[in-house]
Design a protein around this nucleic acid. Structure first.
Lengths: 157, 157
DNA sequence: GTACCTGCAAATCGTTTGCAGGAAA
DNA sequence: TTTCCTGCAAACGATTTGCAGGTAC
């Protein structure tokens, strides 16, 4: 098996877990490795499937453990829990400012894609100060038809 | 029972349902009346409770019907389905431009409040054109601690 | 009278929890 | 050896569906 390189997030997460007193369980390790490779949010079910089927996956992990570990990671702010899609939680590694992004959701195929925009970010920060809430996080979701689905519609004529 | 005034939304929704060939069922009517009075999104369960307990509620409606009717209304763009809170759908009447708003969610008590901001809206429209998706809707959620919860924290010292 | 509407109860699906065996320290 | 970690299976809660009776037209 090829030794794969980890990102900064993986190292930070490993350390944080250790500092928080968690042991080096195999399931937890497998989840960290997987989350580290994901560009956008994925659901617990997707994580389970990926770990089960991907050849390079470290091992399979039971669904209960997936939820438990994700909850631990969320409590340490190592993953962010999103509500996007089908009334299902999705999770993604909480990376630094540079990787901060929002989400595009295709209404037709359910595809989820990240996007980022600096001006929008500034606007959100400004709005956050004018609102009766001590804002800790924000989240923007744009819904519509993705290019793939738009193309398909075109081809079907 | 006092005859209550309906908003433009109620009339538009009634007409749209009729045009779409739906009959004037009692459950559907009760739901329209209720949704018409709500300032912000509510869940199917909340709707059921409200219809059951409120004195001015027209009648009770079974949960299955609530979901079915909400799905019809959503298909006609008469309500908007949101994912805010506990992996639960919430629904609110789709009103004209003036009532367009986004949501503040309190992480501590779960309270949901609407907010609106014109500059943010313009920014969202701009961003929508620069993204690989034919954007049909957008949604912004700000999470944090509401004033009530912040006050409580203060008082507890 | 027919076709649609509605309520009830059962099924589904994502998520959470209880418990017992297995692994890390 | 002790305590934590994990998987399994059962519990849970929101949502959906099948079906039978009731209602609008």
């Amino acid at each position: 098996m090829v030794e794969s390189k980890h990102t900064e997030w993986y190292d930070r997460a490993s350390r944080a877990l250790q500092d928080a007193g968690y042991r080096r369980g195999g399931a937890r390790h497998a989840l960290l490795e997987l989350l580290d490779t994901q560009a956008c949010a994925c659901s617990a079910i997707e994580i389970e499937e990926t770990l089960r089927h991907r050849s390079h996956a470290t091992r399979t992990v039971s669904r209960a453990s997936i939820y438990r570990i994700l909850a631990e990671l969320e409590a340490l702010s190592l993953v962010t829990k999103l509500e996007v899609g089908q009334a299902t939680w999705r999770f993604e590694a909480t990376r630094g400012g540079k990787h901060h992004h929002h989400h595009l959701v295709c209404d037709r195929c359910g595809r989820l894609m990240p996007f980022a925009d600096e001006a929008l970010e500034r606007e959100l920060v400004r709005v956050s100060t004018r609102v009766p809430l001590a804002v800790a996080e924000h989240e923007v979701i744009l819904r519509g038809a993705c290019e793939r689905c738009t193309d398909d519609a075109y081809k079907s004529f």
